[in-house]
């Protein structure tokens, strides 16, 4: 099984520990992980802000970078959704504009091999107990693109429920957006902050020590607000919880 990690630009730059956690976790589960250095950004910030043409070289790069792999594991719901939902649209629009089929071919190649981390664990490796240990109360926020675009369903919760020592706390209004939304957070800062205020209040009310998601971009917003509020609730990517074992110093 040839498996590559698409770490995503935001994890690469701001949350390298999440990438390291995915490597630790997959290797513990017996998967040999590759990291092609030609990988970069999926293009979601450009695409979702309306810059479709600036996205195109990044989609071609993605397909090229992972050409030799059967599976691409992405520790981000929204980046995985970008590839799966929007790369085919890039291809369709380019073809309709008479610019050939290269993007459509890139999408056809990239889409079926791209898996969000919890999908890869549950659907491909067929594992929900990854032997993890995390002795804290945790609340889980299902991020919108993972929830509605990828349809992750209960995969993340199934994985968390098998983590030794972890107590899962229910989050009120869990399925409501946290207010990040990429450039939405700076284009509509007041509404974004109002949404984030409600989300972080619900998180604090759970009394959990950590809030967990499948997406660090949402956590950057949630964690940034919690930090500003002086809250001690820690934002943690699910990979970091699943990577820890009883042998680790937490």
């Amino acid at each position: 099984m040839r498996v590559a990690l698409f770490v995503t630009c935001i994890n690469d730059t701001l949350y390298p520990r999440t990438g390291r956690a995915v490597v630790t976790l997959l290797e513990r589960l017996g998967v040999e992980v590759g990291f092609p250095a030609a990988q970069s950004c999926c293009g979601q910030p450009q695409f979702n802000t309306g810059y479709r043409h600036a996205t195109e070289p990044l989609a071609l790069r993605y397909a090229r970078a992972f050409r030799d792999y059967e599976y691409v594991v992405v520790p981000s719901g929204s980046c995985a959704a970008m590839v799966r939902d929007n790369y085919p649209r890039l291809g369709e629009k380019a073809a309709a504009e008479g610019r050939g089929g290269a993007l459509a071919e890139a999408a056809a190649e990239a889409v079926p091999k791209t898996y969000e981390l919890t999908e890869f664990l549950v659907d491909v490796l067929r594992v929900t107990d990854v032997g993890a240990y995390y002795p804290h109360a945790v609340t889980y926020h299902p991020t919108c693109h993972g929830l509605r675009m990828l349809g992750l369903g209960d995969r993340p919760r199934a994985l968390l429920s098998h983590v030794k020592g972890l107590e899962l706390r229910e989050l009120e209004g869990a399925q409501e957006c946290c207010g990040f939304g990429g450039t939405f957070a700076v284009k509509n800062p007041a509404v974004s902050a109002a949404m984030g205020a409600d989300k972080t209040r619900h998180i604090r009310e759970t009394g959990a020590a950590a809030v967990c998601t499948v997406d660090n971009s949402c956590l950057m917003h949630i964690g940034g607000m919690l930090s500003r509020q002086g809250s001690t609730v820690r934002p943690v990517h699910i990979a970091e919880i699943l990577a820890g074992t009883e042998g680790d110093v937490l």
């Binding site: 919108c144 693109h145 929830l147 509605r148 957006c177 939304g181 450039t183 939405f184 284009k187 974004s192």
Partner: peptide, 8 residues
Amino acid sequence: YASSLCGA
């Protein structure tokens, strides 16, 4: 741009 693209 009046949307976080949450998809609800």
